[in-house]
Amino acid sequence: MNKEAVLSLLVKNLKKAIPEFADEELDTAKSYKELGVSSLELVEVVTRTAKELGLSLAFKELGSVKTTDDLAEVLLRLQPKA
């Protein structure tokens, strides 16, 4: 899966977790804090996305994640190499 596909999956799951975002164009470079995403909502996005990607996550890797772009980078890194 390439970065665009991972970003699109993350945005889909973010909209699912926060229905208020459904009709919005989400800026993936904006921090979750700026977007007003709570820890619980972020956990929802990460666990749902990891499940859909079939990834077993080491969450320590996610400590520095602040934006959807950051998160996509980490998920791409964690994907098993083909």
Partner: peptide, 18 residues
Amino acid sequence: SVIPSYRGTLAVLCIQEH
């Protein structure tokens, strides 16, 4: 527990994993 300015992070998940 996470302080409000860090609620848009995955600190809780990282702590639970630890």
